[in-house]
Structure formats: C-alpha cells, structure tokens
C-alpha cells in the first residue's frame, strides 16, 4: 500500500459521474464543494449535471449531507477499515464471509450494488474526511481507501482525495516538502530535517515538554490540543502571530497582531488539491503581514552569533541509523 491516485478538482467537475464522500460532511464543513466542484456542475461530458452523477455518502450517522446523496451507507462506527477491505476483495470477486460482512453493519446486496456501480462508472472519485482519517485505524484507513482507488483503475478510471480544511494547511505541507522533504512532524535539532510523526509532531513535542519556546502562525492550538500541551505552552515563552484574539493568543507571552491573509495581506494559498491560488488583498490593514514580521525576526536573529563555533564546519552525514 502507498501512494495516492488523485486529480485536481476541475477533473471531478468535468468528468466524475460517480462520487463517494466517506467520513465527511461537506454540506456543513465544505459548503461550496457540491456546487463548485462535484455534484451540481454541468460540463462538456456531463451535460445534465446532477442527473448525470451518482453520489454515495458513507458515514456512521445521518448528517445534513445525506439529503444531497443518492445512496447513504451507514457503516458501524470504527468499522471503516473492514468495509474498505471487503470492498477491495469484492471488486476482485474474492469471497467474503457473512460474519465479516455483518461486522460492517451493511448487507451483501447493498455492497454488491455499490461495487457494480463503481465498476460501471466512467470516472469515479472518493473524497474522505476526518471521520475516516481521525477515527479508529487513522492513517491505515486513509491508506486502505487510497489503495482501493488505485486498484479500481484495473476496471475504470478512479481517484481519491482527502477533504482538507483549516485555511492553508495544504500550503504549509507543500512548502515543508520542497524545503525539507517531509510534510510535517519535522525536527531540525541536528541541523538537518528529520521526520517522525508521533515523536516530532507539534502536539507530541509539547506534551513531552521538549521545547523551551513556541512560535505559532495561523493556528490556534490552544483551542484544539490536549490539556498537557496547552499547559506547556503556558509555561514557556509562546509567541503568536494572529489577526485575532484566540485561545492561544490569550495564553501567549507575546501576541503580534498581523493583517489577515487574503483580506489585507497578499500571498498564495494552496487548495486541497494542491493548486496554488494567489491571494489579492481587498483592504488595507494598519498591521504588518505575517511575512513582514517573520522577516524582521529573521533579520534580528541573523545579527546574533551563529549556532556553530566560528570557523567550524559540521560534519557531512552520508548515512544515518
């Protein structure tokens, strides 16, 4: 397992006649998704728009998105991985036992119908949300779904895409990748990037109390992280750049008010399909942009002595254990 078979949202708009949302509630969390990209648009290939498309919603409970779906499949909580694995078997005509099916809470004929529809689609797309990626099984669930999408290509065109949110999280991920090779959970404490989610992720570093200062841009961990992490942020000098007063800014030692991105500050935001979109400010702000603040901090740090003793060069590593 591994990799990701995906496309940009315009491909979905143009071609997808079969769409699955899995563990997400776009009607409330990504309200423009249906209308701009997925089910409501007409296109050269799908001239009748909604009528030419089938939408399946998989979730553990009925949400507001059910109304927009043609088919709703209610999976038992925590059984997503099992259901995806069963589907991977069924598309290849492998045997699935009744008791395995019973675990998922879905009947055989329902799944057989789903598999038939998936295979007869011309272009299928699966979107998955945090109901899949942040529940029991976590990244293994995402990997299973991405594998299902990859394997479906033996029969017809199929892709999958995570439903990402939280402003420009995709942009942070993209830039970290080109500068360090890794998307998140990176430490530079040996002078070069190392990656280990679960060890170097922000929340883990904070909970262990490993860092002695925190610098936070465009995020509000004080609202979402577990209490031990928040307690550590309170103990150490925490600096926050944010246009607003947030939970984190309240507990921070320093809060620098900055101009809001896209409203009063220019830049680039990466959409969930990793397309870069330029931000053009509509208003002027009396506050500096995040970029200006970071540049000034950087310049001030550059005036300080370098971290290595003068004249010494760090050793090049050719291999690490």
């Amino acid at each position: 397992m591994g990799g990701k078979v995906t496309c940009t949202l315009g491909e979905v708009k143009q071609r997808a006649d079969f769409i699955i949302y899995w563990g997400g509630n776009p009607a409330e969390c990504h309200p423009r998704h249906f209308t701009k990209y997925t089910i409501m648009q007409k296109s050269k290939f799908l001239p009748r728009g909604r009528k030419d498309r089938t939408m399946v919603l998989v979730d553990i409970r009925e949400t507001k998105s059910v109304k927009a779906a043609d088919i709703f499949l209610q999976v038992r909580p925590g059984r997503d991985f099992e259901l995806i694995t069963i589907l991977r078997a069924m598309i290849k005509d492998q045997h699935v036992a009744d008791e395995q099916l019973a675990e998922t809470g879905l009947a055989r004929d329902v799944l057989e119908d789903l598999v038939a529809r998936m295979k007869s689609a011309k272009f299928g797309c699966m979107f998955f949300g945090m109901g899949l990626s942040m529940t029991r099984g976590k990244h293994m669930n995402s990997a299973a779904l991405l594998t299902l999408a990859a394997e479906m290509n033996a029969f017809t065109k199929f892709v999958a895409m995570p439903m990402r949110g939280h402003g420009n999280v995709t942009g942070a991920d993209v830039i970290m990748r080109w500068q360090t090779g890794y998307p998140f959970g990176i430490t530079f404490n040996r002078g070069y990037p190392r990656y280990n989610p679960g060890e170097f992720s922000t929340v883990d570093v904070l909970v262990r109390g490993d860092c002695d200062a925190a610098f936070i841009i465009g995020a509000d961990p004080g609202a979402t992280m577990p209490q031990p992490a928040i307690d550590h942020l309170k103990r150490i000098p925490t600096i926050v750049l944010d246009p607003h007063v947030t939970h984190t800014s309240r507990l921070a030692r320093v809060h620098i008010t900055t101009a809001p991105q896209g409203i009063a500050a220019p830049g680039t935001a990466y959409r969930m399909d990793e397309l870069p979109l330029p931000l053009k400010p509509a208003l002027k702000s009396p506050y500096p942009t995040d970029e200006e603040v970071v540049r000034r901090i950087n310049a001030a740090i550059a005036d300080k002595p370098f971290w290595l003793p003068e004249g010494s060069q760090p050793q090049m590593l050719t291999a690490q254990v």
Binding site: G3, Q179, G181, G191, P193, F306, Q313, A319
Partner: peptide, 30 residues
C-alpha cells in the same frame, strides 16, 4: 518527495551552516 520518506532517511543530509541551508539529497532532493 512526499512518497519517499524512507529514502530521505538513508540519504545524504545537508547540515545548515552559515552559508548553506539544510536539506536532503537522494532520489528526490529538496
């Protein structure tokens, strides 16, 4: 790059110096 973290781990690492930024070599260098 995102798909090959296992290669980044075993490859040449560039340590940050005064004139050089850190990074990784390998199959898909930073």
């Amino acid at each position: 790059r995102a798909m090959t973290p296992e290669d980044h781990r075993r490859t040449q690492a560039f340590i940050r110096t005064k004139t050089r930024r850190s990074g990784l070599g390998g199959m898909a260098p930073t």
